[in-house]
Design a protein around this nucleic acid. Structure first.
Length: 192
DNA sequence: GCAATGATACAG
DNA sequence: TGTATCATTGCT
């Protein structure tokens, strides 16, 4: 009865653009302390690739904040932006090459009542933004550098066996001061 | 259009 | 040690 499978190290180690597109339609799962499950299907992702990508946090080399991006694939990279909002990324590529996929939106499936309480909002706006979904799922600094491939981790991604949905490619959001050609890279993928 | 809100990065 | 910036959101 195990038609669902946790995405593994081999999957996350692929080139970032491959992983990013493949993550569309995958299931983000988080187990709460009380054992209840939160989940949602990924609808939008964004790619940040290497030290040359001037929009990527790794552009100036490793720092205390971004060091997890330089480590092995399949780890979570969670950071605070604008002093308020937590962002959830998944590290990709070979150990030593800094890259990650930002999860920008999910469609809620399990634990919707919990999400509504945390968001104090209706379902339409529960998790359709990178900081909305971390709030709905209760993801913060404690969830940085989690190994999603570890069968014991209480946050992970599930392959439901679906085909990759039809999606649009766009420039990345919110990186307006990034110089070209990085500003215009079509590295945002969103289900149509 | 813009305030909220704090960690980070880098200059000096 | 000071400060400009920030992979956003929600309210005016």
């Amino acid at each position: 009865m195990d038609r669902f499978s946790r995405l593994d190290y081999a999957f996350y180690s692929q080139p970032t653009l491959i992983v990013a597109t493949a993550l569309l339609g995958k299931q983000l799962v988080k187990t709460e302390e009380d054992g209840s499950i939160l989940s949602g299907l990924i609808t939008e992702v964004e790619s940040y690739i290497g030290t040359e990508d001037l929009a990527c946090h790794a552009r100036n080399g490793p720092t205390k904040r971004n060091q997890v991006m330089f480590g092995p694939a399949g780890r979570s990279y969670v950071y605070l932006t604008y002093g308020i909002h937590w962002m959830l990324n998944i590290v990709t590529e070979k150990d030593g090459f800094p890259a990650a996929v930002l999860i920008r939106g999910v469609n809620p499936v399990d634990g919707i009542q919990v999400m509504k309480q945390r968001r104090e909002s209706n379902q339409k706006e529960l998790s359709d933004g990178p900081a909305k979904l971390t709030q709905a799922f209760g993801i913060n600094r404690d969830w940085n550098n989690i190994n999603l491939c570890d069968p014991k981790s209480d946050i992970y991604l599930n392959d439901l066996g679906h085909q990759t949905p039809v999606f649009a490619k766009s420039p990345r959001i919110g990186i307006n001061r990034t110089p070209e050609p990085w500003l215009s890279k079509l590295w945002n993928f969103k289900i149509i």
